[in-house]
């Protein structure tokens, strides 16, 4: 596959992965991926990257920080 085609499709990969690309574009990308190992690797690892950050634990505001916040905002009487 020609390199410029890789570059052209690169900008569409998020839409492709999220299922937001048009049917015609999906077909073009699938056809390109079938013959381009490098782009297939980018798609696979991009998907994996998205999956990984979606499973990251979310940091919590600690109870001590919450209490400090309520005090600063003069809302101490609402602390449970």
């Amino acid at each position: 596959m020609e390199e410029h085609n890789c570059q052209h499709l690169l900008g569409e990969l998020s839409a492709y992965i999220e299922g937001e690309a048009s049917e015609a574009l999906c077909a073009e990308i699938r056809e390109h991926l079938a013959g381009c190992e490098d782009c297939q690797a980018v798609v696979d690892t991009l998907r994996k990257t998205i999956q990984l950050y979606h499973t990251l634990p979310q940091p919590d505001l600690t109870e001590a920080a919450r209490q400090r916040l309520f005090r600063t905002l003069d809302l101490e009487s609402f602390l449970k």
């Binding site: 690797a41 690892t45 994996k48």
Partner: peptide, 25 residues
């Protein structure tokens, strides 16, 4: 623009779940 083209997506799942991998992310 991707320069790293090795397909690492099929590493064993436990490699993605380590503390080191999460720290890297």
């Amino acid at each position: 623009v991707p320069t790293q083209l090795f397909d690492w997506c099929c590493l064993p799942e436990h490699d993605f779940a380590t503390t080191e991998a999460k720290t890297e992310l």
